[in-house]
Design a protein around this nucleic acid. Structure first.
Length: 574
RNA sequence: CGGAGCGUAGCGCAGCUUGGUAGCGCGCCUGCUUUGGGAGCAGGAUGUCGCAGGUUCGAAUCCUGUCGCUCCGACCA
C-alpha cells in the first residue's frame, strides 16, 4: 500500500478525552475515531490491525475444530425470555421494539441464538460434538465505558460455542479451546497469563480468563510466586487463617471516637494496626439486611460472599439503611448487638481480641471477642486474596498483578440446553441435553491491550503479527526520479517477499515521515534517501529497540531476509 | 445511579468573573525558500460559540431548561 492512497490521518496531539495510552495512540495513529460514548469507527489502519488478530483467531479456531458462522446482531426477546435472561440481564442489554411493537435486543452475547440454531438442527448423538464460532460486533450498554477500545459499548468479539454429548466430551471441547487460546495469544506476541476465574451463579465446573499483563488492567490477578497457580482475585481462594492469639480478652470497653469513621482513622486513633480492627460492611442480600465482617486491612469479596450464600443479588446498603439496621450513622457499625445475620471472614478466627464499631455514634469497642460479645452466623472465605497470602496449592506466598481480560473460556454445562431444550437422542434412543461451553476473545480489545503492552514515547511498537503493516519503506526524496524509481522497485520486491509493506511516498519532510513511521508502530522501517542512495545502501531500523543497520542495495534481498529474521526472532514470533 | 467538570474552527485551547467587531497554536489552501527526526516567510479559507428559551438596546459571556461528552465514586461503615 502506498501511504498517499491509504488514509492514515495521524495527529500530533491526543484528543482530550483519551485517558489511557492505547486510546491516545489509536487515535493519534489514525486507527480509530469516536462516534459516541464507547462506540468507535475503525479507519483503514485500525481495521487492518483488527483483521490481523481476527485472522490468527480464525486459523486457531479452525485447527481446534470450530466452524465459522455469523449470527444476527438483532435478536428477538422471546429467546431471552425462554432462557430467563430477559429478566436477569441488567441494563447492559440494549432493548428496543420493532415497528410491530415486538421486543428486541442487540446481542451482547449469543448463547440463546446459537442454542436455538443447534436445537433445530442437531437431533442425533452422531452429529455431536460440534463447535461454532463467529467474529462479530457485540453491543453491551456498559455503565461506564472508558479507555477507548478497552471497554467500549460496541466491540468486536470472537465467540464460540461447543455442544457435546456428555461431560467428558464437553471437557475435551473446553481443553481444545483452552489450548487454542494459549496458541492465539502466544502467536500474537503478547505477555499473558491464563487464570482461574469465577464461574459463579452459572454453576459451571470451571472457567479460565486469559489476561494480558498490564498496569492499566482493570482486573487483579493473584499469582503464586512458586507454582503455576493463578486466579482472578474475584475467585482466588484464601486458606483459612491460623490462630495467632487465642487468649480471651479482658472485658469489652466502649471508647469515645468522635468523627473517626474510616478504618484508617479508627486504627490511628486507637493506636492499633488496621489488622486488629473489624470492618463491618452492611449489605442488602436478596432483599434482606446482612453484615459482612472482614479484617480492617482486608477487602470484602462480594462475589465470594454471593457464592457462599448462594445469593442472586447483593448490594451495599445506603446510609439510611445502615442507620436503620445499626442504630448509628455510617462509620460506627460493628458486630456487637446486631440483630441481622452476620457473616465473618475466616481471618477473624485468628484472634479473640478485636476493635470494632459500637453501633453508636462516635463510639467504638475494644477488647471485643466475636465468640463472647457478638453472634456470628457463619464463617467463610469472603475476602480478596492479597500479596503475601499463601498459595492454596503449594503454600508459598502469592503476588498480585494487573491484567486486561482478553479471553474467557467457560464451561456452561446444561444451563442453556435445558432452558431452551436443546436435546438429542443418544445411542440408546434416550433423549439428553447437550453439554455446552462458550469461549470468547475480545478482538478489538486485544488490539488495545497489545498497544498498552507495546509502546514507547514515540508511539506504538506493534509485534509483527498484529501490526497493520509489517514494514514501512520511507522514501525521503520523492521528487528525485532515480530514488523514486528505486523505492518503487524495492516496494515491489518487498511485496513479492510476502510482506505487508507501506510505502511512504508522500511529499513530506523526512522528520514527518520518521515521526509517523514510529507512531504507527510498524516493526520494520527501511529508509531510502539521497545520502544512502549515493553510498548504495539504505537504512534499516527495528522499531523495537531502535537498532539501525545499513543494508546494501546490491544484494539487498539476502541482506534484508537476514535482517528481518533477526527482527522477528527478537519478538519471538518468527 | 451519585458527585464533579467540560461543550468556542478538523484537533488542542484562550476569551466568560466585569455583556459591546470571536481569538491563539497545530492542521488545511496558495506561493517562495527549505529538505535525514513533526521547517521558515508571506498570503488565505474555515465558527449557527452544543441546542432551545429568557433577561437586555446588545449575549460566547448572565438566567432557565435540554442534549452531548469526560472524569471520579459506587470497597463506606
Amino acid at each position: 500500500m502506498r501511504w498517499s492512497t491509504c488514509y492514515i490521518p495521524t495527529l500530533k496531539e491526543a484528543p482530550a478525552d483519551a485517558e489511557v495510552i492505547s486510546h491516545q495512540l489509536l487515535v493519534r495513529a489514525g486507527m480509530i475515531r469516536k462516534l459516541t460514548t464507547g462506540v468507535y469507527s475503525y479507519l483503514p489502519l485500525g481495521l487492518r490491525a483488527v483483521n490481523k488478530v481476527a485472522a490468527i483467531v480464525r486459523e486457531e479456531m479452525e485447527l481446534a475444530g470450530a466452524r465459522e458462522v455469523l449470527l444476527p446482531a438483532v435478536q428477538p426477546a422471546d429467546l431471552w425470555v425462554e432462557s430467563g435472561r430477559w429478566e436477569q440481564y441488567g441494563k447492559e442489554l440494549l432493548r428496543f421494539k420493532d415497528r410491530h411493537g415486538r421486543d428486541c435486543c442487540l446481542g451482547p452475547t449469543h448463547e440463546e441464538v446459537i442454542t436455538d440454531l443447534v436445537r433445530g438442527e442437531v437431533r442425533s448423538y452422531r452429529q455431536l460434538p460440534v463447535i461454532f464460532y463467529q467474529i462479530q460486533t457485540k453491543f453491551r450498554d456498559e455503565i461506564r465505558p472508558r479507555f477507548g477500545l478497552m471497554r467500549g459499548r460496541e466491540f468486536i468479539m470472537k465467540d464460540a460455542y461447543s455442544f457435546d454429548r456428555d461431560e467428558d466430551g464437553a471437557d475435551n471441547s473446553y481443553r481444545a479451546m483452552y489450548e487454542a487460546y494459549q496458541r492465539i495469544f502466544k502467536r500474537l506476541g503478547m505477555r499473558f497469563k491464563a487464570v482461574e476465574a469465577d464461574s459463579g451463579a452459572i454453576g459451571g465446573s470451571f472457567s479460565h480468563e486469559f489476561m494480558v499483563l498490564a498496569q492499566t488492567g482493570e482486573d487483579t490477578i493473584i499469582s503464586c510466586s512458586a507454582c503455576d497457580y493463578a486466579a482472578n482475585v474475584e475467585r482466588a481462594e484464601v486458606l483459612a487463617a491460623e490462630r495467632v492469639d487465642a487468649a480471651p480478652p479482658p472485658d469489652m470497653e466502649e471508647v469515645f471516637t468522635p468523627a473517626q469513621q474510616t478504618i484508617e482513622d479508627v486504627s490511628a486513633f486507637l493506636n492499633l494496626s488496621p489488622s486488629r480492627v473489624v470492618k463491618t460492611i452492611l449489605l442488602e442480600a436478596d432483599g434482606k439486611p446482612l453484615a459482612a465482617l472482614v479484617r480492617g486491612d482486608h477487602q470484602l469479596n462480594e462475589i465470594k460472599l454471593k457464592n457462599l450464600l448462594k445469593l442472586d443479588t447483593l448490594r451495599l446498603a445506603n446510609s439510611e439503611e445502615i442507620e436503620d439496621w445499626t442504630g448509628a450513622p455510617t462509620g460506627f457499625a460493628g458486630p456487637v448487638g446486631l440483630s441481622i445475620p452476620v457473616i465473618a471472614d475466616n481471618s477473624l478466627r485468628e484472634r479473640e481480641n478485636w476493635a470494632a464499631g459500637a453501633n453508636k455514634k462516635d463510639t467504638h469497642v475494644i477488647n471485643m471477642s466475636l465468640s463472647r460479645d457478638a453472634r456470628v452466623s457463619r464463617y467463610g472465605d469472603i475476602r480478596n486474596s492479597a500479596p503475601g497470602d499463601l498459595c492454596p496449592r503449594c503454600r508459598k506466598a502469592v503476588e498480585s498483578m494487573r491484567g486486561i481480560e482478553v479471553g474467557h473460556v467457560f464451561k456452561l454445562g446444561l444451563k442453556y440446553s435445558q432452558a431452551l431444550n436443546a436435546a438429542f437422542l443418544d445411542e440408546n434412543g434416550v433423549e439428553r441435553h447437550m453439554v455446552m461451553g462458550c469461549y470468547g476473545v475480545g478482538v478489538s480489545r486485544v488490539v488495545a491491550a497489545c498497544i498498552e503492552q507495546n509502546h514507547d514515547e514515540n508511539g506504538i511498537v506493534f509485534p509483527p503479527p498484529v501490526a497493520p503493516f509489517e514494514l514501512v519503506l520511507l522514501n525521503l526524496d520523492v521528487k528525485d526520479p532515480q530514488i523514486r524509481a528505486k523505492a518503487d522497485e524495492l516496494y515491489a520486491l518487498l511485496l513479492s517477499e510476502g510482506l505487508d509493506v507501506l510505502l511512504d511516498d508522500r511529499e513530506e519532510r523526512p522528520g514527518v515521515k520518521f515521526k509517523d513511521a514510529d507512531l504507527i508502530g510498524a516493526p520494520m522501517q527501511l529508509v531510502l534517501g539521497a545520502k544512502g542512495f549515493a553510498k548504495g545502501v539504505l537504512e534499516a531500523k527495528a522499531r523495537r529497540g531502535g537498532h539501525k543497520v545499513e543494508l546494501p542495495l546490491e544484494g539487498f534481498v539476502e541482506a534484508f531476509r537476514e535482517w528481518k529474521r533477526s527482527v522477528y526472532s527478537a519478538w519471538g514470533t518468527a
